[in-house]
């Protein structure tokens, strides 16, 4: 699996100059543009949610996942493929009162 990097590694100028070329490149390498906890990321096409989490360094058994505002059952994280444009919230428990 190719290394994932935040799409934000491009600066604003680079994004602007790439323009439509960038959009074309997206489909050429079949990678997907997604958001994870508000941050833009690119992942290879065809990965499951569990694979996406592992790649980021998150243990899928220790978090809860919301995709486009709907809860994804933990038991199905390995079966569901990431789609282009998906918006994920990955949460866990922290100290609180």
């Amino acid at each position: 699996m190719q290394r994932l990097g935040p799409a934000s590694s491009l600066n604003r100028l680079e994004r602007a100059s790439l323009g439509s070329y960038w959009l074309a490149a997206m489909s050429l390498d079949r990678s997907l543009g997604i958001r994870v906890n508000g941050e833009h990321r690119r992942v290879p096409g065809g990965v499951s949610i569990a694979e996406m989490l592992n790649e980021i360094g998150i243990d899928p058994t220790k978090v809860a996942v919301e995709r486009n505002l709907a809860i994804v059952a933990r038991s199905t994280l390995g079966d569901i493929r990431v789609e282009d444009g998906d918006d994920f919230e990955i949460v866990h428990f922290v100290g609180g009162g």
Binding site: G38, I56, K62, V91, F93, G95, G96
Partner: peptide, 19 residues
């Protein structure tokens, strides 16, 4: 104990966990 639900820090997911 009460706990809060917050985003996992995806830039550093290895931070120590409450659990």
């Amino acid at each position: 104990v009460t706990v809060a639900v917050r985003r996992v820090n995806i830039s550093d997911p290895t931070q120590p966990r409450l659990s």
